[in-house]
Nucleic acid binder design. Structure first.
Lengths: 186, 186
DNA sequence: GTCTATAGTCCGATAGAC
DNA sequence: GTCTATCGGACTATAGAC
């Protein structure tokens, strides 16, 4: 049923996320749906929890595949956020829209994000961690709402910079500047 | 009437933005409201245009009050975005939620944001402009949805860093690191 | 131009049979 | 547990008087 709910928001956006649509999609009737989720809020809460769990897993997997250096977790976060926007992300966006009207439901997710950042930034200097984290969030949000002013090429450049900054610090930026100057001088 | 519409979304969120509520708030009746805005989409479009115009003005004013150095526009953008979230911002968030279901209406706004970035980044190296821009957007979004993991003190520190990076380049970050080390050595 | 009244639709939730 | 049927309410939009 949660699969069906995700499919519905993917196709029709937040406003189409109705109990009728979800029930139809899930192949059950509205009564059957509301036996498992007594209210619509309960359904939204379950969807949100599933997204959070998915996100946690994806980050953990990616983290495990990276060499254990300072900034590994932050780097995994960057890479996990800047994949081509997948289904989960679009669901997240729609849910964000729905939950904007129900601020209460967003509370538990906020706690997750809070704890997540604490772990990401544990082994990276504060300024650098905050910068990488916020820029990544900004990039994600921009693409989610299709407001990004960057070309795919520029986007790739930014992603490389962020990934390098997560582990290498300012050397990442200085290096690209140096490389550009060298190129210009050729 | 647009004032009334803004007031309604501020108080009740996106889901309360109904023609009835707006009309009641504006002191007119629904018929009167729908004479000026034939459809609800027309109302949303007008609200969005007004927000964009407000934003453009605020940025222009702030820009004029800053010394004319490279990165002035970007710095004004940072400062304009990180003021304590004002009414316009909360309206923006709610509208974002509403418009998520009507992607068509977001198109014109997307163009504005696109052109805005082009001007911001005109006199700043690409990597730095993109980093400051995205981090600012990220900070704005995090606070808007109340998902920010930063304390007010940390937030202020980040804002200072971004404002300095807008004009001074990497010196800003390097300087804070240096200062911290000096402090630790004392 | 602004009003009242209402049409027509869709939603979340409930009730009760099976 | 899952179904059908339906209630009560809220919504957008229209029609027509003034």
């Amino acid at each position: 049923m949660l699969d069906a709910a995700q499919a519905v928001v993917l196709e029709g956006g937040a406003s189409r996320l109705t109990l009728d649509a979800v029930a139809r999609r899930a192949g059950v009737s509205k009564g059957g749906l509301m036996y498992n989720f007594p209210t619509k809020d309960a359904l939204l809460k379950a969807m949100l929890e599933r997204l959070v769990e998915h996100n946690r897993q994806a980050h953990a997997d990616l983290c495990a595949s990276l060499p254990d250096r300072p900034g590994r977790s932050l780097r995994a976060y960057v890479m996990n956020s800047v994949r081509a926007l997948d289904l989960d992300d679009r669901v997240s966006g729609a849910l964000l829209a729905v939950l904007n009207s129900n601020p209460g439901l967003l509370g538990p997710a906020a706690e997750y994000f809070n704890g997540r950042y604490a772990k990401l930034a544990a082994d990276v200097p504060f300024e650098r961690a905050a910068l990488v984290y916020l820029a990544t969030e900004g990039l994600w949000a921009q693409e989610l709402f299709q407001l990004s002013p960057f070309t795919p090429r520029q986007r790739a450049q930014i992603v490389r910079m962020l990934a390098r900054m997560a582990e290498d610090g300012l050397g990442a930026v200085k290096e690209t500047v140096k490389r550009r100057k060298a190129k210009a001088g050729r």
